[in-house]
Amino acid sequence: MNLTRRKLLAVGAGTAAFASFAAMPTFASVADDAMAEFTGGAAVQDGGLELTAPEIAENGNTVPVGVEAAGAVEIAVFATGNPTPKVATFKFGPLNPTQSASTRMRLAKTQDVVAIAKMADGTFRKTSSTVKVTIGGCGG
């Protein structure tokens, strides 16, 4: 096969375009995989829990976040745009009256933060909130 310079460039550009296109869905699916791992593939209903996060976070290194879901046994928080989407999992014991907790997290960039609650009857509830991040919190 005779590869001319022109042909070689065309092939190279095509491969690069394909690679970048293929990389995008895999990046989004990291978060989906993490969520599916928590729910075990079960159906997730919207609403039924509260996620408190700021609309705009100036510093991505410490973003306050709070969750509350009456009747939940477990709540997991995910940052869909982080290199590792899992943030924290809260398991509530018998002496926890409100099933609420708050902490501070890192966000790499502007993204959706998702909270999924596992209720006492085994069903899952979900809510999300978009946080705009001015300075990302992943070092680098």
Binding site: T62, V87, G93, T103, R106
Partner: peptide, 29 residues
């Protein structure tokens, strides 16, 4: 835990900020 009964059990991931802060509620029987 309170007197051996669990209040909260949190799994923290690298996305938690430096000097991890946690706030939660508990019943005191």
């Amino acid at each position: 835990d309170f007197n051996g009964q669990n209040v909260i059990d949190v799994t923290l991931e690298p996305a938690i900020s430096t000097n991890p802060y946690l706030q939660f509620e508990a019943t005191v029987p």
